[in-house]
């Protein structure tokens, strides 16, 4: 099985330059960790950007050059230890996370049980929007909704469908106000996703519409 859904070229070019907002960069980075194809794409873009951005020279005054070189050579050699692997835990299950998200496994404010068979753990990134790990148990459904801003979703484990498509582990999904969908999973092992939202969701059908006034509490 191969990952089918990837960030666009445009997104990756900006990502490789460090020009995308941090939370959006984080979820793209997590996808790249999981996707060999995008690792190659990013490496290629970085090489091309190097040609473009490190091409020109701007000479430093000799004095400054010499001082800087001396200071650097006198600097101590840093010894960094590799980080320990962190797992995300829910209900006795452990999920391995992509490298870029590891540091955040310990930064969730606990799992909360939402409607149906959904669990959500908010990750405090200090961003304006919001970032969550969301776990859908088998048969779990998020009520039909659309988006006021954009929603980026990365499937970390398992698979789900939303009436528009079927998404598997590693898939990178972008939704905005043009998309209305009802995510649900029938996978035995359920489905864990990481989601980054810049604006609250807008629920569009049935009783769930009653959630809208409160959607900032739930899903924001």
């Amino acid at each position: 099985m191969k990952i089918k859904l990837h960030p666009t070229d445009q997104q990756l070019v900006l990502f490789a330059q460090g020009l995308i907002a941090p939370a959006q960069s984080l979820i793209i980075s997590a996808h790249v960790d999981m996707c060999a194809a995008c690792q190659k794409r990013v490496a290629g873009l970085e090489a091309a950007l190097t040609e473009q951005l490190l091409n020109e020279q701007s000479a430093l005054p000799d004095m400054q050059m010499q001082n800087m070189l001396t200071e650097i050579l006198a600097s101590p050699v840093a010894v960094a230890l590799p980080a320990e692997t962190q797992y995300l835990e829910l209900d006795g299950r452990q999920f391995a996370l992509p490298r870029s998200l590891q540091r955040y496994a310990g930064k969730i404010s606990g799992w909360s049980h939402m409607v149906g068979k959904l669990w959500q753990a908010r990750v405090d990134l200090g961003i304006d929007g919001r970032a969550d790990f969301i776990y859908m148990e088998k048969g779990g459904t998020v009520p039909e909704h659309t988006h006021r801003g954009s929603e980026l979703t990365l499937v970390l484990d398992g698979e789900f469908s939303d009436g528009v498509g079927h998404y598997d582990t590693g898939d990178f999904i972008r939704c905005d106000s043009h998309h209305t969908h009802t995510p649900k999973t029938e996978a035995e092992e359920g489905c864990l996703v990481f989601s980054v939202l810049d604006k609250p969701l807008h629920f569009t059908s049935g009783l769930a519409r009653l959630l809208n006034p409160f959607s900032h509490l739930f899903f924001k």
Binding site: S25, L26, P82, A83, T85
Partner: peptide
């Protein structure tokens, strides 16, 4: 709180267990 090391693992020491399977 997101720092460059999270986004681009250029300066991260390799994990001790280099045998970690790729998630791709």
């Amino acid at each position: 709180d997101i720092c460059a090391d999270d986004l681009w693992p250029v300066l991260c020491e390799q994990t001790a267990d280099a045998a970690q399977p790729e998630l791709d």
